[in-house]
Design a protein around this nucleic acid. Structure first.
Length: 994
DNA sequence: CCCACAATGCTTTTT
DNA sequence: GCATTGTGGG
């Protein structure tokens, strides 16, 4: 590589700390490599092992090692992570492994946990954390996730529990001082806040203690541990200083405060520090990168040299001009920087796409990619970048339709059919009553389990309230020599396999069990086969787990794995190096890469810039070691992200925006067009028309249907029979109603509106799900309330009476752990005590009250069904029902709720109450003058009424849903609701095969 | 122009 | 489930 004057200065700079601010495409890594080589050539007596090069990512470290060994083959590339320096090459390492090594030299033996593993570790010990918010949020996982993130931010900023406790104490004192002058609502709010902070502080300390006691630590605490070591054993630091005379840091804008502290300690004279980075490419603030890294450098090293590398070797002039127009809109904390310049040609215009919807965007881009490939562009030189992974879905579909090869970075193998299958077997092995897993397994052709029999079993299970497994077993026992018995040969085979594996699971370690499962199913793959790669990736995950597990056995693994999934853990597929494949990845993942052609998808409002989402527990600015980030920091970081995306392109750049009207575009599109000259000369605007007749086109060919199954299962008796045709099965028309009436309940309608496929799975295919804490609890509470009113007919029931009943009917099914169950039980009893006290305080004639009154009314070809919790007679005298003008008795309909209290507007809209009101009037001869939701959580009643118009609207809604159901429209609507959906393991929308 | 209701999102990632 | 933005009627 020829050096330009800028680069030469950077490479040959001699004395003192050096800060190189290097724009995109300026050959940064090359400069660092050259500088290392230059130092070795020119500094007398300097040996390679006296040089330390630090990066944040392993990828950057390996790249640098590769470059160095290429430039100087004799040199070696230094130690890899965690090992003793082998001598020879410069020490090139990540900050993390460097610190780990420093600590190991001094006998540090604690095991390192990544964020997911810390989450799991804490989740398993949730009882000891004594979370007060656990019961309030009822979602320990999510809260813990937020806590865990917060702990990471603390580690990034070197905030230890003591320091945070002091901060909380300070906040508390401030609150107490201000409290008298606050109005009650404000005081309540702030007090709540202080209580939350106190809990966070307590849990922070406690988790540290738990990790410590277990001989573990998180990756993030490596830095504070290292600093602590250097404080207590100064000779360790001296040794490091003596060893490393020159230190280089790449991607400096990605370093956090803790890492900068490490640098400050290490880099004292005669150490010579070089930091290279670009604040315009800082996109990792959310994971702890200090927004003030450059400022901290300037403060720490006032006698420094700053150099700029702004000659770009990558992109055309047009691309660079547009990128500069965009980034100029940000505040420039570093002050004026030279503009990017290049001797590259002007290049083609940047294309600004404007599509009406995501579907036409994807279709246009896929078409354009196809054109480019036709003109000879290599697939891997084309990249499609997006802000969030979900935005790629449509493009993937369109590329698949056109059979254009592509590869996706950051794909979790857990989403693949083959692993979802294998995991279903594992779940089934873990517990035969995993109904959804069993449903999936039975769909595999090799078990020859006819859908009709499966349907019968599901109906049996829902009738007998037993598991699907038990229902099929009862068929088997009762079948004798009938025709059913013949249909169950596959079932017996499956049971045999599970039994064999179960026995194995007790003796053998996890990887062995997995191998046995795979071979028991007769799965073999050709080398390079995509699914084989998924399998291998998962097996590697198992091996790594075994390393850190206690027993290496199945039980422990399943506990870990279920938490792993709950924690949102991903098992990433190694990226394939297919030169023909178009590259799909997030903008973050694209940092540091370059492509001839770059498409940036969905630069649209809400998507890019992405909406700011503050975490539940925010890291306080007061504890930040750099100045508090400016107000517009979120938008600015998003803008930098787009800047990074744009500067990945060498030749052609497409920026695509989706919005209904051209006026309401992403603010970044406006930014790009804000310079009249650039707008006129460098940008071509293309408007993509919406696809005609949406939905009329053939849906993308299911990639799951495989014609070449035979190749995969060579030598097995049942080739092609492993994969269930999930999508085909889910798309099969469902039997709606035998007598022509479609049965619907309020819940069914609401389920349909959440997700039509969820409705189909639950209400038509009757796939049973496991017991759930909230439901078991709700049922016990309902029964206790009913019990109260029944006893009330004869006397005033005491709390003890109801408590005894409550304990009697309590079931342990569905609770995640003993602690959760105990919490529910305690709160349940508290709520009942309050309920009874209130009810006992008022007069009531309980004899007239009706409970759990079932109904069924006809709405043309629909039968609307349901059950009203409680009907209270009303009137002048409570127990003499007064006929109204129409001759109907006036009543109050009550529904008991055990969940979170909702605002009254919820009661106004509730379809359930409308359906009850309609039922009372049409079927029971009652006039529902009051509809009440009774929240047992806080013993609050929300009452409402229904106008004729509202009731008509409810009927209309039911009719609409019924029409959709009759038309067999059961498209899944994946989204937020999936978090709570039990059918995810059998949902085609959650399956990705590429 | 304002307000109510509908529509549209629910990140990014490393050790 | 929830916050924010967009739409459409008055």
């Amino acid at each position: 590589m020829e050096l330009d004057p800028e680069q030469r200065k950077a490479v040959e700079h001699g004395e003192g700390p050096l800060l190189i601010i290097a724009g995109p495409g300026s050959g940064k890594t090359g400069v660092i490599t050259r500088r290392i080589l230059h130092l070795l050539e020119t500094v007398p007596g300097l040996r390679p092992e006296n040089i330390l090069a630090l990066t944040y990512t392993d990828k950057a470290a390996s790249e640098m090692k590769a470059r160095i060994s290429r430039s100087l083959p004799g040199l070696g590339s230094g130690p890899s992570s965690g090992r003793e320096p082998s001598g020879g090459g410069p020490h090139i390492s990540t900050f993390h492994s460097y610190c780990y090594q420093v600590l190991r030299e001094r006998g540090f033996e604690r095991r390192l946990l990544d964020q997911t593993d810390v989450w799991i570790f804490l989740r398993q010990r949730i009882e000891q954390l004594e979370l007060d918010f656990y019961q309030k949020l009822a979602e320990p996982g999510a809260f813990l996730h937020d806590l865990n993130n917060f702990f990471s931010r603390c580690q990034d900023e070197l905030v230890e529990p003591e320091r945070f406790e002091a901060y909380v104490g300070e906040a508390e004192r401030r609150f107490l001082a201000r409290a008298p002058s606050l109005d009650p609502a404000e005081r309540e709010f702030e007090e709540q806040n202080v209580r939350k902070l106190r809990e966070v502080a307590r849990v922070f300390r406690k988790s540290r203690e738990l990790l410590q006691a277990a001989g573990r630590t998180s990756f993030g605490s490596l830095f504070s541990e290292t600093l602590a070591l250097w404080n207590s054993e100064p000779d360790s630091l001296d040794r490091q200083r003596a060893r490393y005379l020159f230190i280089l840091v790449d991607e400096f804008q990605d370093t956090n405060y803790a890492q900068i502290e490490i640098l400050k300690r290490l880099a004292v004279r005669p150490s010579n520090l070089t930091a290279v980075g670009d604040d315009d490419q800082a996109i990792y603030r959310f994971r702890g990168a200090s927004s003030g890294a450059f400022q901290l450098f300037r403060e720490a090293f006032p006698r420094r040299t700053e150099l700029f590398l702004f000659r770009n070797y990558r992109s055309t002039r047009r691309i660079l001009r547009a990128a500069s127009v965009l980034i100029r809109r940000n505040d420039r904390a570093l002050g004026e920087k030279p503009a990017l310049h290049t001797s590259n040609p002007e290049g083609p215009r940047i294309i600004l796409l404007q599509s009406a919807d995501a579907a036409s965007e994807a279709a246009w881009i896929a078409e354009e990619i196809s054109r480019l490939l036709g003109r000879g562009t290599t697939g891997s030189e084309i990249a499609a970048l997006y802000r969030a992974h979900a935005y790629r879905d449509r493009l993937v579909e369109e590329l698949g339709r056109r059979e254009i090869p592509f590869s996706i970075r950051g794909l979790s193998v857990l989403a693949s059919s083959v692993l979802r299958d294998l995991v279903a077997y594992l779940q089934l092995l873990h517990s035969p009553h995993e109904n959804v897993s069993l449903t999936r397994v039975l769909l595999a052709p090799r078990w020859k389990f006819p859908e009709e029999l499966a349907m019968a079993a599901r109906e049996e299970a829902s009738r007998r309230h037993c598991s699907l497994f038990a229902a099929v077993e009862s068929f088997d026992e009762g079948s004798g020599a009938s025709g059913v018995a013949r249909q169950l040969t596959g079932w017996r085979e499956l049971k045999g396999l599970l039994e064999k594996l179960r026995r194995k699971s007790e003796r053998e370690q996890m990887t062995k069990l997995f191998d046995a499962l795979v071979s028991g199913l007769g799965l073999t793959f050709l080398p390079g086969e995509e699914e084989g790669v998924y399998l291998e990736t998962f097996r590697k995950f198992l091996e790594e787990w075994e390393e850190k597990s206690e027993t290496r056995k199945f039980r422990e693994f399943m506990e870990y794995f279920n938490y792993f999934v709950e924690a949102g853990g991903r098992i990433e597929r190694p990226s394939p190096a297919d030169p023909a494949a178009v590259q799909l990845m997030s903008v973050h993942a694209a940092k540091g890469l370059e492509f001839f052609v770059v498409f940036i998808l969905s630069v649209s409002p809400q998507r890019f810039p992405h909406r700011e989402q503050k975490p539940l527990i925010e890291f306080p600015d007061d504890l930040r070691n750099a100045p508090a980030p400016a107000k517009g920091i979120h938008l600015q970081e998003e803008r930098r992200l787009l800047y990074v995306a744009m500067t990945r392109a060498k030749e052609r750049l497409y920026i695509s925006s989706v919005s209904k009207s051209a006026k309401k575009r992403s603010i970044f599109i406006e930014d790009l067009l804000s310079d009249p000259a650039v707008r006129a000369k460098d940008i071509e605007e293309i408007s993509v028309p919406p696809l005609e007749a949406a939905g009329s086109r053939e849906p993308a060919r299911s990639r799951k249907s495989r014609k070449d199954g035979r190749d995969l299962f060579r030598g097995t008796p049942h080739p092609e029979t492993f994969h269930p045709d999930l999508a085909g099965w889910a798309a099969r028309p469902a039997v709606l109603a035998l007598d022509g009436k479609l049965e619907l309940s309020a819940t069914a309608v609401e389920d349909y509106l959440t997700c039509p496929l969820k409705y189909k799975f639950g209400h038509l295919l009757k796939i049973p799900t496991g017991p759930q804490a909230a439901l078991t609890f709700g049922s016990v509470m309902h029964r206790s309330v009913r019990r109260y009113f029944e006893l009330r007919r004869t006397h005033l029931p005491t709390f003890e009476e109801i408590k005894e009943y409550f304990e009697d009917v309590w079931k342990s099914a569905g609770y995640e752990d003993k602690y959760q169950e105990e919490t529910y039980r305690k709160t349940g009893l508290e709520q009942l005590r309050e309920f009874i006290a209130r009810q006992n305080a008022q007069p009531l004639e309980a004899r007239e009250i009706q409970f759990e009154k079932g109904f069924r009314w006809d709405l043309d070809d629909i039968a609307v069904e349901g059950r009203i919790d409680q009907i209270n007679p009303l009137g002048d005298h409570p127990f003499v029902p007064r006929p109204t003008d129409q001759g109907l008795r006036e009543v109050e309909l009550v529904d008991y709720k055990t969940g979170k209290p909702r605002p009254p507007s919820e009661a106004d809209k509730s379809l359930q109450l409308s359906v009850y009101a309609l039922a009372a009037r049409r079927e029971m001869g009652l006039e529902p003058v009051r509809l009440s939701l009774y929240y047992l959580t806080n013993n609050q009643v929300v009452s409402t009424v229904r106008s004729a118009k509202q009731l008509d609207a409810a009927v209309e809604k039911i009719r609409e849903v019924a029409d959709q159901i009759r038309a067999q429209r059961f498209e899944p609507s994946p989204g937020f609701a999936c978090k709570w959906c039990d059918y995810v393991p059998i949902c085609p929308a959650h399956e990705e095969n590429f």
